[in-house]
Design a protein around this nucleic acid. Structure first.
Lengths: 335, 335
DNA sequence: GTTCAATACTGAAACGTTTCAGCTATAATT
DNA sequence: AATTATAGCTGAAACGTTTCAGTATTGAAC
């Protein structure tokens, strides 16, 4: 019935190898995955032939039968395009996936509905694991994925009493350290331009900021109407206003490089000079800052490593590792 | 034999709908894709039920049967991580793929072997179409994909007499315009920091540069030992050397924002002042530049649009459009 | 020399889809 | 009235994999 496979065109399948070895398809399948009850000699022979013909399991076949997609997906966030975060993050994920059977698919965002991509992934079963960023303390995506039994890892923590893999930068320590550095430069009127409210690291950043202020006996300058997600020109305008006050801040902490540039520009607009009238501390993930604005004090955050971490964690969770062990908080360099 | 599907768990399949409508599976399949020989009433009924139960075709099933993967893949390039190109490009691709059946997968690079990812994609049939960047005049990837009948689109042109979809920025026009702008500022000793040799747009950029020089009767300053791919500190050092010459350039054209910063820094190291002693023209794809170094003259290149374009082109080619019509050369803004 | 167990293998079914080759009414043609 | 065409539907096979339920063969145990 089934035509002999010696003449078959297209990539080799289990059938090809079965034909070449004279074995049954099921035997070949088992031999290749070191299943039980296969003779050592047979196993070796099958593997040899498989290697010679360049056999690669057909992903669709595996996926259809087992339900395993061999896909990890990273969910896009609106607005991450220009920030430099995403490139590095994806390169990191790609680093971790190279050499595994996993492919990386990028899931688009849906404007105004952060849950939509998550639901799509779960409903269509399009991935074995999910990587997402910009977590909130009470994050519906985390709840949903957990309820659906879909492994995931986040860039950023949550506060739901749910144990899940995450990679996070210790923004509390960052903000504290930032205050310390500014104080070391003699700055005493310190403002914070932090992440948008709602995100977990907004909380952490503010906590560290407050703790820093307290520990040096200072009171900070609130910047409640603007955050690092705002368009650069808005940040610049806000900075300009700030600089025009009778007692402008002489130290600014900024949670993103991009906006630190805007702040610097806004202060410059008012004739204030960085290093003389004020200083800025920001995060950076590239050598660009050092080149560009060496006057801005930089504390490094490595997004590529974050990508590598989250990807490894998801794969480990899928493989059965207890998610409780898959958590990493990166401490910023101090001094 | 087959258990009635009313109680089935998991996502709905054709069988579910077949059971609910009382029709056969094949009828449902045809009805959903507007196949021939299905009554209008039946078709409507099937579609209604399908929508109600939230039917989504199982990708693995389709892929196994038809060989169509519904995947477009973008190939990573080593070193694109920090450049800002990649984020924007992927967001653009994602824009174009949203609402279609295509998923975007990111194929990792293999260090030292640009062909490896391409071969992998073709051999494993893991995508219906490929997007790649950084083309060379004689590009083996293009030759290979064409030989294997795999649709693709490039960011950048080739010169092999092969017609294929591409999106490209007219770097010849860019360089010419850049010279003109510098000349308009009174600059006469103009240097070019261009793309690495080997890439097609290296050629274009140099052509435009030469043409610009000729048309203003100038002779350019060659920068043959360094290009925009070099580490920023190397660029800065090279710029410093350049600035230390007895007759340093007073105009620099730079094919990437990042390195334009390094050039500015290198010249500043030698005490030269931008706007007074020299000017820089570069490409930019963000508002950052304007904020940061308004003194640097910027000509916009939109990478997100490039992503949208290449993705649309690949899909069109897959759908049967003549690739000859799928080419776009974007002219830089002039004035 | 029958029974039992272990070893090494095999066939068939199933995952969800598409598609080919029918099949059955009804309508149109002669 | 018999034939044929057609519209509208259906069953079965196939894509490549995994896995369940066997089946020979061998060797040991009684």
């Amino acid at each position: 019935m089934d035509n002999s496979d010696s003449t078959s065109k297209g990539p080799p399948t289990l059938k090809t190898i079965a034909f070449m070895t004279g074995l049954g398809i099921s035997t070949v399948s088992r031999a290749l995955k070191d299943g039980p009850e296969i003779g050592a000699a047979t196993r070796a022979r099958v593997k040899l032939i498989a290697a010679q013909v360049g056999y690669r399991p057909n992903r669709a076949g595996v996926r259809l039968k087992t339900g395993k997609t061999n896909v990890i997906t990273v969910v896009l966030n609106p607005g991450d395009d220009g920030s430099g975060f995403f490139s590095n993050f994806v390169y990191g994920i790609s680093d971790a996936l190279t050499g595994t059977s996993y492919h990386l698919v990028v899931t688009p965002y849906a404007l105004g509905d952060a849950m939509a991509p998550i639901r799509y992934i779960a409903e269509t079963g399009s991935a074995d694991g999910v990587i997402m960023s910009r977590t909130q303390p009470d994050d519906p995506r985390v709840r949903y994925l957990l309820a659906h039994g879909l492994p995931f890892a986040t860039h950023g923590r949550t506060e739901m009493g749910i144990v899940h893999p995450f990679h996070d930068f210790d923004n509390e320590a960052f903000a504290f350290e930032a205050v310390s550095r500014l104080v070391a430069k003699g700055r005493r009127r310190i403002a914070l331009l932090g992440p948008p409210p709602g995100l977990t690291y907004h909380k952490h950043t503010h906590l560290g900021f407050e703790r820093g202020l307290r520990s040096w006996g200072l009171s900070g300058i609130p910047l409640s109407s603007i955050d690092i997600d705002a368009p650069l020109w808005d940040v610049r305008a806000a900075a300009r206003e700030l600089a025009a006050r009778s007692d402008p801040p002489d130290g600014i902490i900024c949670s993103a490089v991009r906006s630190s540039f805007a702040v610097a520009a806004g202060f410059a607009d008012q004739g204030l000079s960085i290093g003389r009238d004020f200083d800025i501390v920001t995060k950076h993930s590239t050598d660009l800052l050092e080149m560009l604005r060496p006057e801005i004090i930089a504390i490094a955050e490595d997004f590529r490593e974050a990508g590598r971490d989250t990807a490894s964690m998801v794969m480990a969770w899928i493989a059965g590792t207890d998610p409780a062990g898959l958590q990493r908080l990166v401490t910023p360099e101090t001094s």
